[in-house]
Design a protein around this nucleic acid. Structure first.
Lengths: 107, 107
DNA sequence: CATCCGTGCTACATATTACGTAGCGATGAT
DNA sequence: ATCATCGCTACGTAATATGTAGCACGGATG
């Protein structure tokens, strides 16, 4: 699967609407989990692997390249971390944590 | 893949943290797109299919069952629509639309 | 009654994506 | 020189998604 970028046809949207491109990017295994984990600071490849318990290195690597290409994360000397844009995204994702806790009480 | 519910091991988290269960559920093809589309009112199966241009009936059906089981959507006489909980989730997702537009200008 | 239409799906073959495990090449410390 | 750790890559298998066809059902129409 090619990197979904807004303006281009992507999985889930032939029109390339920005929101659909974003959903395509984030709607892949571990994409949101990686952003979530990286909000706590830079982590190396192997640290991320541990934090994302069951992710395979193959998938992790693909996801990291996609998120880097999407300018949401970057690699530094200290490991991978969120870009400014990635932090903005995380701030929008953060309320989902609280929602998820309320949601979990329904079961 | 089984329905990810909080408290159970899910794809992406053996611990079953609510946020990871939610990410597992939403991190599947078209899950967020369906919630997004349903925010505009009830739609029948075929209407949803049209709005989610490239989704196969197989996948749509599986996703609808998962989201129903997760109490985020429900089926009514007028078609599928968001539950109260689903609307809450959509309200949290809504800001992503604006973010995505800004994001798309970076390319 | 028969026939047609739109509905919500299901079947099934193919394509894509993810996993699990092993291990490579590079770098740095002992 | 050896060892540990790093970021990955290879590769076979399993799980998911797609695309197309079409079925069973209910309601309207002739």
């Amino acid at each position: 699967m090619t990197l979904p970028l807004p303006g281009n046809p992507v999985r889930g949207s032939r029109s390339g609407q920005p929101i659909m491109a974003l959903f395509d990017l984030l709607g892949r295994s571990w994409a949101m989990g990686i952003v979530w984990n990286l909000s706590e600071g830079p982590y190396t490849f192997r640290e991320l692997q541990e934090r994302c318990e069951s992710v395979s290195p193959t998938t992790l690597n693909v996801r990291l390249k996609e998120l880097t290409g999407a300018k949401l994360i970057k690699r530094t000397i200290d490991g991978y971390c969120l870009t400014k844009l990635g932090k903005e995204l995380f701030d929008l994702l953060k309320p989902l944590g609280k929602f998820a806790k309320g949601w979990s009480k329904k079961f």
